[in-house]
């Protein structure tokens, strides 16, 4: 009889979608599900009240992403990353738990990919006008010169500048998913301009945009309890003094990744999917090994 009493609520389960400008793009969060019991709500509450609990959860998820942006933006002089870029070549700098976590993962990806994923390409991007000019650096070191010490301490062995753009957005998506879960949301999707992750019982249908004709969808993927990240030079590619440049650096050849190509990676977590797209672009052979190791999968779209 109790079950019967709950029926109306099962029919009208709350679902909300919100969007805010964050991390330089539009972040969309969809939260749904009938998780009133986990939200600690009275099942007799009406739909608007339960929706408002969902809005609180989504607000908290946005706040977690904003926190990551404030700590790890290479554009923001007040970020922890900017502090590292200014000072870690001269002294030991202690960073937050989150920044240290991202640095450790970035380092792991750089080591395993032998530099195909490289988070020390900021000087090159700055030279191309895609990051602030202050990040330019003469005779810059590389990822091998980043020391991650105990107690969240960081030191650069040579002058260099970091850009976590290839991994921090994915990490922010993971953090948001974690917050939504903690708030008792039953299923959710966080989409940060193509770096996205879903959790919950149902699978979601994701459309991959075609790299040369963004108004067309080239492929469809069903995603459940997983993340998908896409990297493509098509939307940032430009001419610079007769040279083609983009926001993606081929770290092995020190040139820009250009042309009609788009790489999407499906992985368990979004930071991993995000980082692996760069490995697939820069070192396809090695990428196969890494994809296998992490149970990930790549979708490469070309003209």
């Amino acid at each position: 009889m109790l079950r019967l009493g709950l029926r109306p609520h099962l029919r009208s389960e709350p679902k909300i979608r919100r969007c805010r400008p964050l991390l330089g793009t539009f972040v969309e969060i969809t939260a749904s599900g009938n998780a009133w019991h986990r939200l600690g709500l009275n099942p007799a509450l009406d739909l608007p009240s339960r929706c408002s609990a969902f809005h609180e959860a989504v607000d908290a998820a946005f706040a977690a992403m904003k926190k990551i942006q404030n700590m790890m933006s290479a554009h923001d002089p007040a970020s922890e990353l900017s502090l590292l870029n200014r000072e870690a070549a001269h002294r030991i700098v202690t960073v937050s738990r989150e920044t240290y976590e991202v640095l450790r993962r970035a380092d792991r990806m750089a080591v395993e990919s032998k530099g195909a994923f490289d988070y020390t390409v900021a000087p090159t991007l700055a030279r191309w006008g895609l990051l602030p000019a202050t990040l330019q650096c003469e005779n810059a070191g590389n990822w091998r010169d980043v020391l991650l010490l105990r107690r969240r301490q960081v030191r650069f062995l040579r002058p260099l500048t970091l850009d976590l753009g290839g991994i921090a957005k994915g990490f922010a998506v993971d953090q948001a998913i974690e917050v939504l879960r903690e708030h008792g949301v039953a299923s959710a999707m966080v989409n940060a301009g193509g770096d996205l992750r879903v959790f919950g019982a149902q699978s979601s249908r994701i459309h991959l945009r075609h790299p040369s004709q963004p108004q067309q969808f080239a492929h469809r993927i069903e995603l459940a309890q997983a993340a998908l990240a896409t990297s493509s030079p098509c939307f940032t590619e430009k001419n610079l003094h007769g040279q083609r440049v983009s926001h993606l650096v081929d770290s092995i050849r020190q040139t820009a990744v250009t042309g009609v190509i788009s790489v999407s990676v499906r992985a368990q977590e979004c930071w991993l999917a995000d980082a692996l797209t760069k490995v697939v672009l820069n070192a396809p052979q090695l990428a196969q090994k890494m994809l296998a190791k992490y149970g990930a999968e790549a979708f490469v779209l070309t003209a």
Partner: peptide, 16 residues
């Protein structure tokens, strides 16, 4: 049908 798109990072510069 078409709500979840991956592939283009749209800049939020216009909002800024």
């Amino acid at each position: 049908d078409i709500k979840n798109i991956s592939g283009a990072t749209l800049s939020s510069r216009h909002i800024a």
